[in-house]
Simulated scan of single mutants.
Amino acid sequence: MPTGVALRDPRQQLFDAAERILMRDGATGLTSRAVTAEAGVAKGVLHRHFADFDAFLTALVLDRIARVEAQGAALRAAAGTGTVAGNLTGALTALFEPVMMAIVVLVIARDELRTRLRAAGAARFPLVGEGTAAIAGYLRAEHDLGRLTPGADVDSLAPTLIGTAQLLFTEWRGRPEPEAVRKAVTTVLGGALP
Rank of each mutant, 00 (worst) to 15 (best):
L145Q: 05
R175H: 07
E130I: 06
V68Y: 00
R8N: 03
G151V: 00
G80P: 03
A6D: 08
R175P: 03
Q166S: 14
I65H: 05
S32V: 05
R64T: 09
Q71M: 12
P150D: 12
L22N: 04
E19N: 13
A78G: 11
A123T: 12
I21H: 03
G82N: 08
Q166R: 15
Q13H: 15
A158H: 02
R48F: 10
E112W: 06
L60H: 07
A133E: 14
E69Y: 00
P178H: 02
M1S: 15
P150Q: 05
F56T: 07
A73M: 07
I65A: 09
L57I: 10
T187M: 06
G131A: 14
E177T: 13
T160E: 13
E38F: 10
F56G: 06
A141S: 13
T81W: 00
W172H: 14
T58S: 10
G121T: 10
G4K: 13
G44H: 09
T164F: 01
D155L: 04
A94K: 08
M23Y: 08
A91V: 06
R67S: 14
M100P: 00
A109P: 02
T170V: 12
T164R: 05
P98Y: 11
Q71N: 11
F15A: 06
L127M: 15
G146I: 12
T149Q: 08
A77H: 14
A165E: 01
A122H: 06
G151H: 08
I65K: 05
E97I: 04
R48K: 15
V181Q: 00
L88S: 00
I108W: 12
Q12S: 13
